[in-house]
Amino acid sequence: MNYIFTFLILISIICAIINNRLDVAIDEMLKSATRAVQISFSLIGIMAFWLGIVKIAQNSGLMELFSKLVKKPLVFLMPDLKENPNALSNVALNISANALGLSNAATPFGIKAMDNMQEKNPNKNVATNSMCMFLAINTAGFQIVPAVVIAILSANGMSNPTQIILPTLIVTTIAFVSAIFFAKILEGRFE
């Protein structure tokens, strides 16, 4: 990341000098920094609202109910979690929290799940198949409501920002299913 950052800025400044657009480029550079702060601040309202709603779901036990429902299909995907109930419930809670868009709450569950799986791992340096499956599922980022993105669109004045919910849900489901598919067919090919 350090090299990419440095490279991008240096190459831009060199290009700007060659194209004789240095004044425009510097002006844009300063303006965009201000714009970044404006975007972040404009997120606060909707983020706070959504996190508040989701906290109700957490406190009422809805999230735990949801995580109980996903346990059965999870055992099918990660068979060795049958003997590791702690790992299983942390994986389920992680996926439920992610589905609600609570990535901050999801990470601790995910790390605990990894810890529990590591305890039963015979080879501590190498990931187990279940760990790989869990990671692949996680990177697909299954989410019911993309709250942050909706917040950005709404803050910039889109008239009907919830129109992206269904297309996003379809795409994230496709990515989720293909993550499971790839994790399964690649199993055992990287020993």
């Binding site: 190498v126 993550a179 790839f182 990287f190």
Partner: peptide
């Protein structure tokens, strides 16, 4: 964990 096996590729 140091060996990620197929996790990254699947992702």
């Amino acid at each position: 964990i140091k060996k990620f096996k197929h996790a990254l590729l699947a992702g």
